[in-house]
């Protein structure tokens, strides 16, 4: 399989998985690194393009952000907000404890 110049290592996969809140078993780190490197090697063709002085494109529409006026026009729909919650109580979302 093609190797990108800056290939990801098993350690990188671990870090990326952690950042993404995905669990990867230790014995899967290498295979996933190989898998990602196959894709990254292909992506590295981008290095051939002359991008000197080229502005990055962040949107397919060339406009300024439209803005809304400062009116209270939403909210007040707690039922709707909580309706799909795995757990809620007394108007709150209930989630696993976020502090030790």
């Amino acid at each position: 399989m093609a190797q990108p110049k800056n290939g990801v290592t098993a350690q990188d996969v671990k870090k990326i998985a952690k950042l993404s809140r995905l669990h990867v078993e230790d014995d899967r780190l290498e295979p996933i690194a190989d898998d990602l490197n196959g894709i990254l090697a292909w992506i590295e063709q981008l290095g051939e393009v002359d991008v000197e002085g080229v502005e990055p494109m962040t949107s397919a529409v060339d406009m300024a952000a439209p803005m809304r006026s400062d009116n209270v026009s939403d909210g007040g729909k707690r039922e709707a907000v909580l309706q799909n919650a795995p757990k809620s109580d007394d108007g709150f979302f209930v989630v696993p404890r976020s502090v030790e």
């Binding site: 800056n6 990801v8 990188d12 996969v13 870090k15 990326i16 998985a17 950042l19 993404s20 995905l22 996933i32 990602l36 894709i39 990254l40 992506i43 981008l46 290095g47 393009v49 991008v51 080229v54 502005e55 990055p56 494109m57 962040t58």
Partner: peptide, 26 residues
């Protein structure tokens, strides 16, 4: 998700994400 996380992560943003956006301009 993992590829996306990687290309945005510190140290790789310019090489991948920013470059891809410039290619998009091209």
């Amino acid at each position: 998700i993992m590829i996306g996380t990687y290309v945005l992560s510190a140290g790789y943003y310019d090489a991948y994400y920013l470059r891809a956006q410039k290619v998009r301009t091209r």
